[in-house]
Design a protein around this nucleic acid. Structure first.
Lengths: 120, 120
DNA sequence: CGGGAAGTACGATTCGAGTCGTACTTAGCA
DNA sequence: TGCTAAGTACGACTCGAATCGTACTTCCCG
């Protein structure tokens, strides 16, 4: 539940609108993950984030900002990530507990995903 | 490996073109499952088929045949099902071994899927 | 041998997702 | 106070997926 070890929830900015845990839909989640870039976002958050939420810029994608907004929004509306506004920055983290509760094992698939691009 | 208990592989019709196990892509699989109808197809095959492959008609969908062809083709090209031609009929089964090998746990998510909410 | 059934092939249409440029908003800061 | 950076909002464009009708092929079976 905690966002970072030293930051209790009650002083965090509120999350942006997101579906309730019981409203998560497998088909919608699958659709959100049917894209290599978004798969990469989730995987990187799962494997490389160290207890902190991360901004779009942290990922280092070479895409226009408006494209990134689009994909992060898709992930948030599918219920895969939670986003909070910190001043100018919008930081994201995976909703691991909610997703694990509803779809156990799904995030493990993303963790194990072989992200190598042209694998043929 | 066997298609049905009493039918060795070598006298079965050959499978229609399908991706090799090592070519299965998680993003493509996710895309194939990002659809309630296709999710239903896989789930029904997993839970209700009893060691036999099944035709399109077995599912009882009230959709035009050409639509069904489209969805079964999508599932086959994603590597989720294997299809064989029996005379006029084209029978399908889930490639459980291949999918479990590459993406363990994924089919469990489909089995556990709650198919009831909001018919689309 | 001919009718019917299973399913495909093809094409038209619609619709939404992905992509990105540009303009805008806002917070921090020198 | 005004610049800069992070990110959004909006809109245009493209492209592919979904849908389905119609025509066709092929096999089985009476």
């Amino acid at each position: 539940m905690a966002c970072s070890p030293s930051t209790p929830d009650d002083i965090l900015p509120p999350p942006l609108p997101e579906p309730a845990p019981e409203d998560l839909r497998l088909d919608v989640i699958m659709g959100a993950l049917a894209d290599p870039l978004r798969l990469t976002i989730i995987r990187k958050l799962l494997l490389e984030s160290e207890a902190y939420d991360h901004t779009c810029g942290w990922f280092g994608f070479d895409r226009p900002k408006s494209s990134l907004t689009h994909h992060f929004k898709a992930l948030r509306e599918a219920g895969l990530i939670r986003q909070r506004q910190y001043g100018l920055e919008r930081r994201s983290r995976v909703r691991t507990e909610d997703v694990d509760e509803r779809f156990p094992g799904l995030l493990d698939l993303v963790r194990a995903w072989d992200a190598s691009p042209t694998r043929r």
